[in-house]
Amino acid sequence: MSDTITDTVPRKPALAVRGLTCSFDGNAILSGLDFEVEEGEIFVIMGSSGAGKTTLLRHLLGLSRPQLGEIDLLGEKLHPASRERVYQLRRQLGVAFQHGALINSMSVIDNIELPLRQHTSLDRSTIRIMSRMKLELMNLAGFEDYMPAQLSGGMLKRAGLARAVIMDPRILFFDEPSAGLDPATAAELDTLILRLREVHNMTIVVVTHALESAVKIADRIMIIGAGGIRAIGTLGEVQSEPDEYIQSLLQRRTLRREDDGDAYIDRLTANIDD
């Protein structure tokens, strides 16, 4: 018997993206992205800085409206949908931001309790116990009365993750779990992500550019660059792609730029009058 979800039950897409297109000031950031994320899958989105990972994530969360294309979240269209419908969908999502995005004026425990206090009619003691369980899960017991400004980067991420999973979401989005962390703390977060999938059967979408983390947690990896999908598949499938951009990302090589001299001079002298 397999110990992962990957090859046990037939899957249906938790997230489906079709023809997603977005541009800023005439520059295409995402052009015609098509992909699906299956239920119970850990799907890692990778790409170099500026490849559009954060823009893609904002679209998946309904924080930005696509110029073209469709996003289906848990079988429902994200656009067009009323604000109330989007909020109902979001109650089934958890989002852990890169720097935690905890509300600065609240203690750690108040931050974690916030979704429960807003969306449930549970009594205060039940909410407190549930929040402490998540704090224990994230190894943050004893820090409940700390303010966000008193926590380290790794603790902020873990507290953000605790808040993201407090409602036991069906899909968890995690933006850059390992960015700015030492290897031990990053590995600890990877273990937490795997544990969440194992215990709660969550679909998890992770945006990262940390290869070590992707190798450890991903069922499938999607690499984006130059506005499009450069590769999608299991780690082995992605690694076998001959594309130089993919290889530079996976092997941390500098990407060779093919420029002619005129283009270089044009860039240097752009928008200079005299």
């Binding site: 904002r58 969360l61 924080l63 604000r83 909020y87 109902q88 979001r90 109650r91 999502l93 989002v95 931001f97 890169q98 720097h99 995005a101 905890l102 509300i103 600065n104 916030l114 979704p115 807003q118 969306h119 953000g160 808040r163 989005f173």
Partner: peptide, 14 residues
């Protein structure tokens, strides 16, 4: 600036 408003949106808190 710190994405706290986006975080509220993502928690389905208007």
């Amino acid at each position: 600036n710190d994405n706290q408003i986006d975080a509220l949106e993502c928690m389905a808190i208007d």
